[in-house]
């Protein structure tokens, strides 16, 4: 496993319900990032289709692996990179049960996926109408380290990131489609999740306007001490890059040893209390 690698945050806007066009854009950004020696390129939540597709989701969802992941796999193989992107995933066992999923592929093909656990269904969000929630936190072993995946609203619930960390993830990738009115929350929570888990956190947000929602971009890589190592522009497409050096974790983990000090017995109490809000 590499101790150090280069991550690219590909902050794109999507053409809604146009997978062909979005796949082209993904390929284009991967190539640009590869030219700057990126090993891992991360795209936003539902970057295959756009975020506000509403009822069209039923036509757009695909199984994983499926036709679109195969295209991404080829891009990853050709460029010898790792790619994370988001798409509506059709369950193999059904005809209309869909997940909001993050997919990780690498130079040797498909690696794994994460199904979003917390689906916002309030304010302007209607995810539970369309998606079934996932039930598993994930962390995948790769040549560039153990990578945990979470999606957008998951970041409001520290247990999702924590689970990925406890599974061994040293880099938590959070793909997102966050509209501008929520910017402050994410700017704080992304740093909090990195600090409390002493892990790197890569946050990649969508840009563009969909159905009146303006996605604010502002993607960033955060170090285990909460420092923003690189940040993309607000509101515009951008591609920024930064090294992830896992040897940076140790000094932080000794200085703020949150994992050493974790108290498992509290989780039982937490569970009981959460059942009765």
């Amino acid at each position: 496993m590499k101790e150090k690698f280069k991550i690219a945050l590909a902050q794109i806007g999507c053409k809604r319900a146009d997978k062909k066009e979005n796949l082209k854009k993904i390929e284009n950004f991967v190539e640009k990032a590869k030219n700057q020696s990126a090993d891992l390129i991360v795209f936003p939540e539902l970057s295959l289709t756009g975020y506000v597709v509403r009822d069209q989701i039923y036509e757009l969802a695909e199984t994983i692996p499926g036709p679109s992941t195969q295209v991404i796999e080829k891009i990853a193989e050709k460029t010898q990179t790792y790619i994370v992107f988001g798409m509506p995933e059709l369950s193999e066992k059904t005809q209309a049960t869909i997940y909001n999923t993050a997919v990780l592929v690498g130079p040797k093909g498909y690696i794994g996926k994460y199904r979003k656990m917390y689906l916002p269904t309030h304010s302007v969000f209607e995810e539970k109408r369309y998606f079934r929630p996932g039930y598993q936190a994930v962390a995948f072993d790769t040549e560039i380290g153990k990578i945990g995946l979470i999606i957008c609203y998951d970041i409001f619930f520290p247990e999702v990131s924590r689970l990925t960390r406890l599974k061994g993830a040293q880099l938590i990738v959070c793909i997102s489609a966050s509209p501008a009115v929520r910017k402050t929350f994410f700017e704080i929570l992304t740093a909090a999740r990195a600090i409390e888990n002493t892990a790197f956190l890569a946050y990649v947000n969508l840009v563009g306007i969909e159905n009146g929602l303006q996605f604010w971009g502002g993607s960033r890589l955060i170090a285990p001490n909460g420092k923003v190592l690189v940040k993309a522009k607000y509101d515009e497409e951008d591609l920024v890059m930064c090294d992830v050096n896992y040897s940076d974790i140790k000094p932080i983990e000794t200085f703020v040893p949150t994992l050493k000090d974790l108290r498992p017995e509290l989780f039982d109490a937490l569970k009981k209390s959460a059942e009765n809000i």
Partner: peptide, 8 residues
């Protein structure tokens, strides 16, 4: 319950 984006 036709739910479609307005700016499609």
């Amino acid at each position: 319950d036709f739910r479609l984006p307005r700016d499609y």
